[in-house]
Design a binder for these strands. Sequence first.
DNA 1: ATATGCTATATTGTCAACCATCTATATTAT
DNA 2: ATAATATAGATGGTTGACAATATAGCATAT
Lengths: 222, 222
Amino acid sequence: MTTSTTTADRIADHLRSQIAAGQLAGGDRVKERDVAQLLGASRGPAREALRILEREGLLEIRPYSGARVVRIGKTEVAEIVTLRRQVEYFAIGNAALSSDPKVVAELKDLAAQMREAHRAREAMKLIDLDLKFHLRICEASGHSTLIAMMRTLLPRLTILWYPQVFKGHTPESFEESHLKMVRAIENRDVAEAIHATDQHIENFTFDLELRLAKPPSSMLAS
Amino acid sequence: MTTSTTTADRIADHLRSQIAAGQLAGGDRVKERDVAQLLGASRGPAREALRILEREGLLEIRPYSGARVVRIGKTEVAEIVTLRRQVEYFAIGNAALSSDPKVVAELKDLAAQMREAHRAREAMKLIDLDLKFHLRICEASGHSTLIAMMRTLLPRLTILWYPQVFKGHTPESFEESHLKMVRAIENRDVAEAIHATDQHIENFTFDLELRLAKPPSSMLAS
DNA sequence: ATATGCTATATTGTCAACCATCTATATTAT
DNA sequence: ATAATATAGATGGTTGACAATATAGCATAT
């Protein structure tokens, strides 16, 4: 649970979790007033939070018509995974070239934290750490536009991933998969970095299922 | 001047033009109140507009510290052009596969409009049309994430391009460069589509200069 | 002169109440 | 059943106020 600086961020975090966990399903409507009251805030920050989630591709907003949770179909899944792969290649390639020891240390730390979160079965925390890990790699490149693109991609991946976050790997294998990427960065081995990334993505998308839209289920849905 | 639906969009459009034209230079501060009053609006929409431009990578916003126009250096220029190339390959490849006649017609129309805007030396209109053109190619793919990424990229390109928008080509050569892409889509020729895109980007980036930050210059700067 | 800490001020962050405007739904008339 | 019309509900936008924070400027100490 990251202590965000602004109310809008806090609200966005909360809604993001709800969406990832499926408490807000595809097609559900999200109203400014409900969101605001739920977190004890006013409409301003709530509105802002919805825009944040729109940019992340988790909500669709149409003027005067409100926000709805996006429906993600098979096409989108394939699309997101493909784009993610390309962006991550680019990112880790650059990270391997610069190979900042400080970044390497941080990544190793994140990998260890993920292992623990995995052991503790803290799904949301694990996802949050994983996002931080892959975003850190982008940030290491120092390319602001690349970071922006990654920010566009990662939240969408979250939705796909959450339902089966512990599936197909152990805390140790999960950590190892990440560490392979880190070591490649550490050794300035661009080819290996990309290969490790390829494997990493492959390991955790082999049976990604789309989450079908289901009937309204949450207290936010109307 | 595009007639936007919401006030925030209108404000964002206005500021985007100012930034592209250099009336707001890198490092300049942009205040909510000033922006609001300038367009006869209140702080709400102004705030929203700033967030829009932040997402587009034209502004940097820090909590309680305000928004500043980003400084774009040589590194960023190279980065943006490279990423743009990759995204556009992906987009036009998909567009060529689907090859929607309606889209093709729209693209041809846009190319013609660009020729006229070029003849009339209407820089901002030309850029606006060009953005529409390339965005339309993305939209043709139907990939919402790809569209999101393109929306991240295009506004940044605008800043780089504006200072020399008419340089290195005639209205006719400019139209032809776009038409080559359109015809490739029309003929479902993926390889040619990518080649045409490559040429197109190459033609108009050969001597992209970075715009250096300069002293505050506008009525919005403080 | 430089560095440090404090104060003052401007700006952002947030709230609340209110009205305008539009969308979508329900209703009515044909 | 269909089309035109009301109605309700939500969003878009305004105003004014206040709280929280960062930054610049000033005083002080080194």
